[in-house]
């Protein structure tokens, strides 16, 4: 067929390209620049890197102090590690819980499948903030869980879950489970059935078929789902802020406090940039798999 003529093409390409360039990519350049500035008591609260002195000389002041500060104040290192650890174990639990769910949905009949998928997707559409808030109603000291357990006589005093690390884990698993199930389902559903049948015809017991055929073939789904949970979970703010205790110091919370509490924009920028470098690897892997899947 005749390709659409060149000038017409740019009318379609340029608007989204420019918009995302200006409002998504260039902001990182500004954050990078400001992470080298110093805090100043003015609006906006940081110094210029390039400025002209009164005698019209260009002045260039670059401060590495903010990055040095990240290494000297141990709160940042602790928060980074805590965030990585929390996100890693939550992702693992989501995978253990989500894989059988996705597997069951992929094996259901077509009509059941549609209903089950809707059930899994629906929470994704309802407010994240409100779902985290709803979870609080279950796990707080006088919440449903404790009330039921006390009534049953299983415990004699309320379990303390709110404001602990356990609450943060529960919050992340509860909020991000659909992100794990959906990509897993997508790969499991596309699985070539004839391979499974061939394996069992050749005498493999079901668990061997699963380990030798299903599991290796579903690795792209495992990677996509895990990254979709892990990356946002590392930067999570709402969950540790509403459910966690003072020791649930995730990097998102540190950033928020640095910004709104201390008004230290340059340090906050440096935290954000350092954080981004830390996530660059996982994000690149995610992009790689995504592009490969779309081109396929």
């Amino acid at each position: 067929m005749k390709p659409i003529e060149r000038p017409g093409r740019w009318l379609i390409i340029l608007p989204p390209l420019l918009f995302l360039l200006i409002f998504f990519l260039i902001p990182f350049v500004f954050a990078f620049k400001i992470s080298f500035a110093d805090t100043a008591a003015r609006v906006p609260p940081f110094t210029d890197i390039l400025s002209t002195t009164p005698d019209h000389h260009l002045q260039f002041s670059l401060s590495l102090g903010n990055y040095q500060y990240l290494f000297t104040d141990e709160v940042y290192g602790v928060a980074y590690l805590y965030s990585l650890k929390t996100a890693f174990f939550s992702t693992l639990i989501c995978l253990v819980l989500g894989y059988p769910m996705a597997y069951a949905i992929a094996r259901a009949s077509k009509s059941t499948q549609n209903i089950l998928l809707l059930i899994i997707i629906l929470p994704f559409w309802t407010s994240f903030l409100l779902r985290v808030y709803a979870l609080e109603g279950i796990i707080r000291d006088n919440g449903i869980l404790n009330t039921v357990l006390l009534h049953l006589g299983l415990i004699h005093e309320p379990l303390r879950i709110m404001r602990t690390t356990l609450a943060v884990y529960l919050g992340i698993i509860y909020s991000y489970l659909p992100f794990m199930v959906l990509p897993l389902f997508a790969t499991l559903e596309k699985l070539d059935r004839s391979l499974l049948e061939a394996a069992s015809d050749l005498g493999s017991p079901p668990w061997r078929v699963f380990l030798d055929v299903t599991l290796p073939l579903s690795i792209p789904g495992i990677i996509a789902g895990s990254l979709l949970v892990f990356i946002p979970a590392v930067g999570e703010f709402v969950i540790p802020s509403l459910l966690g205790g003072p020791d649930s110091l995730m990097i998102g919370r540190v950033l928020w406090d640095e910004f709104f509490g201390n008004h230290d924009w340059p340090v906050a920028s440096a935290v954000a940039i350092a954080f981004l470098f830390l996530l660059a690897g996982p994000i690149a892997i995610y992009q790689y798999y995504n592009v490969k899947q779309l081109e396929a």
Partner: peptide, 25 residues
């Protein structure tokens, strides 16, 4: 390639980073 990257990145970018960088812009 740039466009592909820019439409996929926001899906996984932690909101707090997007928010802070956009404010600075």
């Amino acid at each position: 390639l740039l466009l592909t990257g820019m439409v996929n990145a926001p899906l996984v970018m932690p909101e707090i980073i997007t928010g802070i960088t956009q404010l600075l812009l």
